[in-house]
Design a protein around this nucleic acid. Sequence first.
DNA 1: TCAAGCTATATTGTCGACAATGTTTGTTTT
DNA 2: AAAACAAACATTGTCGACAATATAGCTTGA
Lengths: 228, 228
Amino acid sequence: MSQIVPIKSATLSEDIAQQLINAIVTGDIPQGSKISEPELAKRYGISRGPLREAIVKLEGLGLVTRTANVGARVIELNLADMLDTFTIREALEGMAARLAASHMPTTEVDSLYALLDKHQAFLDDNQDEHYAQQGGNDDFHLRIIQASGSQKLIRLLSHELYAVIRMYRHHTADQRSDPRQALREHKAILDAIANQEGDLAELLMRRHISRACRLLQQAMEQSTHSTQ
Amino acid sequence: MSQIVPIKSATLSEDIAQQLINAIVTGDIPQGSKISEPELAKRYGISRGPLREAIVKLEGLGLVTRTANVGARVIELNLADMLDTFTIREALEGMAARLAASHMPTTEVDSLYALLDKHQAFLDDNQDEHYAQQGGNDDFHLRIIQASGSQKLIRLLSHELYAVIRMYRHHTADQRSDPRQALREHKAILDAIANQEGDLAELLMRRHISRACRLLQQAMEQSTHSTQ
DNA sequence: TCAAGCTATATTGTCGACAATGTTTGTTTT
DNA sequence: AAAACAAACATTGTCGACAATATAGCTTGA
């Protein structure tokens, strides 16, 4: 439970915040565990000042909860919270798809089609399936979010929600996703965006996320205790 | 530009954060202005430690932006950002209405009908019209959000987004809202929720917010310079 | 033996001071 | 006179120490 790799940011506080985010998302700092300021300060070799600022930021990201005069704890993952998280994601990312349908330039549309073709090739070759399944999936989604042009959507989704979502993925060993089905859905969404059909794009994105949610739910119900 | 009323919270940091939120939302600390740590620390009679933690929290709420080694500034209100904000609100609060249609107990439905009746009475008597127009409006919306049962929706909307929305209201003098039309829309939304028609409730809520957004937009375009 | 209260310990919250970075002012040079 | 450099100043970032609160362990009493 370590990996104290300095990320060299402008300020110690940001640096530590990023390290803590990584540590929590990957499970390096386990869910539900207490955040001890003296311990972490010693581990990272900093004082408690910037560390506390980082913790306040984590609270804002919803990765830890704080109680006055008691301290911070990493959130605990459970089914209800996961469903809650994906409800938000469905609403926001559906809206992002709608906006992308109006805003996305044709060059970016083409670029995304190329990306999906690459995913298709990965699947056909069965080569590095995991990439297409995880990173590739996020890649597509993040670019749709970017294309929405909404600064607040970008921040809420890319920087805040996705931390928790990745945390759920990391903590759910078995990922019974169906990459080919996901890719089909991605293509349908992109088609709608290319045709500037905002309503349809939103609808398809919401269904797509809802389906991913159900898959994750099944995986979680399967391994109720293996996730601790 | 003062009002240093202690709010007596468990911790100085929370206290100051709440005071700063109020000060920014009401315009006591003007939009775009620099947040000087020494100045504020002296004004509130605290040290810079808890003040900085409060500022980090404000950054998380999107009320200030920070630059490393330079400091924090209050956000600047403008049309694009307002439209962006209401886009998020439309997506999230639409989802809240949908969930409320499934979750809201009949007792709460009745209670909300009573609330709307009270608003109706206020309007008919033309007595304290401003209350029904502002506080009452928020009252209704916040209770729908509560009824969604989603902790994350409640937090995102009630605690984060609404701060910025209130800021826009405070900074836009002329509020050409049509309280009677708003009330009609509220009733329609509540009807859909009472009938457990989630799709309809979401649709109506989104239209309702979209309309409020357009009204605010007109008011802002009117007084482009009076809002500074 | 268990519960309640007290004491000792550890952790969080706050403070003032120092270091590092940005900003402003004044000077010099072209 | 304008631009570039330098020094003085102010602000932010970080630190270690102290105060306040919570937790753990021990003692006492029923």
